[in-house]
Simulated scan of single mutants.
Amino acid sequence: MLSVSFMARGEAAQFPPPLLPAAPGLDNYRMLFDSFGVGRFLANSLLVSTLATLLALLFTIPAGYAFAKLRFRGRDAIFRLLVAALVVPGQIGMLPLFLELKAMGLVNSYAGALIPWLAGIFGIFLVRQYCLSIPDEMLEAARIDGASEAQILRRIVLPILTPIVVTLALFVFLGSWNDFMWPLIILSDQDLYTLPVALAAMSREHVQDNELMMAGSVVTTLPVLILFLALQRFYLSGLLTGSVKG
Rank of each mutant, 00 (worst) to 15 (best):
I144L: 15
P89R: 08
L114Q: 06
A147F: 07
P18N: 14
G90D: 04
T60I: 04
S237N: 15
L236I: 15
L168D: 10
L227S: 03
I134M: 03
D34C: 12
M7D: 08
L212T: 12
R9E: 11
L236K: 03
L231V: 13
P223W: 02
F15E: 14
F36A: 04
G175I: 00
M94R: 07
F33K: 06
A142P: 09
A43H: 01
G112Q: 06
F36V: 05
D189C: 03
W177A: 09
M94H: 00
F122Y: 14
V165L: 12
G112K: 08
M202E: 02
A8T: 10
A63K: 06
F122N: 02
W177R: 08
F41L: 09
M181T: 13
F180Y: 15
G123D: 00
T241F: 03
L70I: 08
Q14T: 15
L55W: 06
A103V: 01
I186M: 09
G120M: 08
I152W: 02
K69W: 08
V127D: 00
I124M: 13
A215N: 02
A198W: 01
I156F: 14
M1Y: 07
H206K: 13
M7L: 05
P116H: 04
L170K: 08
D209W: 07
L161C: 11
G175S: 09
E140M: 10
T194P: 05
F173P: 00
R155Q: 14
Q190M: 05
P223H: 04
M138K: 07
I78C: 11
G93P: 08
F41K: 03
A23S: 11
L187H: 02
D189A: 12
Q151T: 11
P183V: 11
A200I: 03
M104S: 09
A52S: 13
V83P: 01
V38N: 06
M202Y: 05
D27W: 04
P16I: 11
F98W: 11
S237W: 01
K102H: 07
A147N: 02
M181L: 15
Y130I: 12
L212R: 10
R233Y: 00
G37M: 13
S109P: 07
Q14M: 15
V197I: 12
V38Y: 10
A111S: 12
L222N: 07
L158M: 13
E205F: 06
S176T: 14
L187A: 03
S35R: 15
N210Y: 10
L199I: 14
R128E: 04
G146R: 10
G216C: 02
M213S: 06
S176C: 15
V197S: 01
W117M: 07
A147G: 01
Q151D: 03
I124G: 09
A12Q: 05
L212E: 11
L170Y: 06
P116C: 06
V127K: 00
R204F: 09
F125D: 01
